[in-house]
Amino acid sequence: MKTRVKIERIIQETREAYTLVLENAPSIAQYLPGQFLNFFLQINGQEVVRQYSFSSSSFIGEPPSVTIKKVAGGLASNFIGEQLRAGDEVSVSSPNGRFTTTFGVARRVLMVAGGSGVTPLYAMMKSILAQEPESQVTLLYANRSSESIIFKKELDHLERKYTGRLEVRHFLSAEDAGLEKQENTVFRKLNRFDFQKYVDAYWKENPEVFICGPEALMNLSVESLTILGLSADQIKMEAFSGMPGIESRDDKPEAYTQVEIKDFNGEPITFMAESNQSVLKSALDAGIRLPHSCKESMCGACKVRLVFGQLNMKTNYALPDDEVEQGYVLLCSGFPQSEKLVLQYG
């Protein structure tokens, strides 16, 4: 469901990153730290949909805010940063996403971020520290230079406020140490030995891990932590951006699949899907507007249940394991693998 909300303020965080402080509208007020909003933007006469994570925490009374980093050639991030102003309204969805946390007993938490991937982690960090007085958090944050560190002053303030409970370690890959030594900064890339030091120190406490950043950083983190003995249940990840080429590929011969979808607006529909592209893209090409939003396997808006046939999800950041076991699939990343598919909503 779309709703219009006003931009109350725009805060310039770094040269490329900025935060939109939104009005506390009822439609977005009940969000969890780590979740995101879909933004529905009208750019050059077309609707462009993008997802941006909350950087705020409702648990400490902050207004709903999302933080966005401009990327070279980025259609939406540059449009918002250059064209929108405080007082403008934007169309957004209700809060989405499963990359979040619940609160309870004291725990040891490791967070690993790269670039703007720190945004949802920053929201969760503030919430955990406020809600769980005995919990401890460590953030390993990778950037190219000190100028690209988002929330630098805020992170320094939180370290002072939560002395002994929060540790932030910066890794700067394209900057020399210079004359000024910084205790919490390492002038190199994050590597597997950094994870080993952490796990060696805290493995008895069964640490919980949250990772968000570029694909290479996430792969390094998961591989290192898994080798060091952490289980899949201890590690939660969020893709920092959509995976390239998710809608189509050309590594197999062209073939077609008959797709039947039940209970779409109360009636079944059928169409032919190409094997070299996602089922969602085939449907849209055929003029059938199935429910969807991000097209990046993150929001779960295109979720259906597979009743018959074979479908391969290229990526999945939205469905938990229990829903996958129940047969649910994402059409935006699902490629047909059989002559016929039967799918069902609900």
Score class of each variant (00 low, 15 high):
A123L: 10
S57G: 13
L32H: 15
K189Y: 06
S55E: 09
I246H: 00
V186P: 03
V21G: 06
N184G: 01
M243S: 13
A17H: 05
L228H: 09
L228P: 11
F195K: 10
L290M: 01
K252H: 08
Q35L: 15
A106D: 04
S77M: 08
L158V: 07
L121Y: 01
D251Q: 05
M124A: 05
Y198N: 01
A106T: 06
G34M: 10
S94H: 10
N312D: 11
S53K: 06
G97Y: 04
A76I: 13
E23Q: 15
Q258I: 02
R192K: 13
N191G: 07
E89L: 05
R107S: 05
E47A: 09
K281G: 00
F151W: 12
F59E: 06
L290W: 07
S55K: 07
S278V: 08
S173M: 07
Y256D: 01
S146E: 09
L306F: 01
A201E: 13
R305L: 00
E89H: 14
Y345M: 12
K295C: 13
T315M: 08
V324I: 14
Q337E: 15
E154L: 05
K204I: 04
G117D: 09
R249V: 07
L37C: 12
T101I: 12
G245H: 00
L341H: 12
P133V: 04
D176A: 14
N184W: 06
S135T: 03
R305A: 00
F99L: 04
Y122E: 07
E82L: 11
F40Q: 10
Y52L: 03
E339Q: 14
P268L: 03
S116L: 08
A86V: 01
G327V: 03
E154W: 07
A17T: 15
G164N: 03
E274S: 13
K152Q: 06
L140S: 05
I43T: 10
P268G: 05
Q35I: 14
R305S: 00
I149L: 12
M313E: 00
E167V: 08
S333Y: 02
I227N: 05
M1D: 14
I149M: 04
D233W: 00
E47I: 14
P64W: 11
N276H: 00
V168S: 04
F193W: 11
Q131N: 12
Y31S: 14
A25M: 10
G178N: 02
V48N: 14
E260R: 11
A72R: 15
L290R: 00
G213S: 09
V71F: 08
A216D: 14
N24M: 14
F195Y: 14
E180D: 07
S145M: 12
R108N: 05
V92M: 09
F271Y: 03
G81D: 02
G74E: 01
I150C: 07
L37P: 11
R50S: 11
R85E: 09
G61I: 11
S27L: 15
F103Y: 15
I211Q: 05
Y317T: 01
K340L: 07
N312R: 08
V109T: 15
E183A: 09
L155K: 04
A283V: 05
F335V: 02
K204G: 12
Q30G: 11
S221G: 02
I60M: 10
F335H: 13
M111A: 03
V168M: 06
